[in-house]
Nucleic acid binder design. Structure first.
Lengths: 119, 119
DNA sequence: CGGGATCCGTTTTGATACTG
DNA sequence: CAGTATCAAAACGGATCCCG
């Protein structure tokens, strides 16, 4: 199961990590920063995520109040996801990661321990 | 195994997440922000981490050039870990997480979906 | 004695096929 | 289209052994 943070560690960093300290949640968060997304749309934007893992993480994030899930009684089914206010307040975290990642990519060729792959 | 990022995804956020997008690495990173630490010291600072997992993640981070490992041929054994320059450049990420976490904790009592635990 | 390697059982994560 | 069921892979924890 994807843990939904029911406990508040004393350390603030541990608190944050408990909520979004995993690969997929961070990428999902990023995907939702641009606004409302349908399930399939979100999936397309996150390479290599399976629908089960996406569902699991979205449910955990919903429980934690980060994500809002809206189900439409239609055929074909339609489920929309968006960030709550709390979820949107995480934006700076992804922001900083993006800046760092850009810089890292820029310098990657000068570092020996990395191997460039285009996928 | 703890994946050591050998590939560079196109998305900057994915790049960052690939390097430190896991619970333990983020907490290890935090532990090392204050300077050089011995293995046992680091372990004490991270609740509930097993020595095996700590070793695994430290090795992965070493391979990624984030962490520097120094072994001293002494008795009793002494192994020191510290951030590389690259590792230290990740500081803002932990910083932002800490700020967010503090704010979250402050507001936790007003939100219904969280349950306070002191551990 | 501190750091680490290894073996083993459990839990978590993930890929795939299937359903309404 | 979105979500569940089934099954395989791996991450994790703990105990134990090791080596200096």
């Amino acid at each position: 199961m994807i843990p939904t943070s029911k406990e508040l560690p004393l350390c603030p960093v541990a608190t944050t990590v408990g909520l979004i300290g995993n690969k997929w949640k961070l990428l999902i968060l990023q995907g939702l920063l641009t606004g409302v997304k349908r399930f399939g749309e979100l999936r397309k934007g996150i390479p290599d995520i399976s629908q089960k893992v996406l569902t699991q993480n979205l449910r955990a994030m919903e429980e934690d109040g980060i994500v809002i899930r809206k189900v439409f009684a239609e055929v074909p089914p339609r489920v929309e996801y968006q960030l709550s206010e709390l979820g949107d307040s995480l934006r700076p975290i992804i922001s900083v990661m993006e800046v760092w990642g850009l810089n890292y990519q820029k310098n990657a060729n000068t570092l020996e321990h990395t191997k460039q792959v285009t996928s």
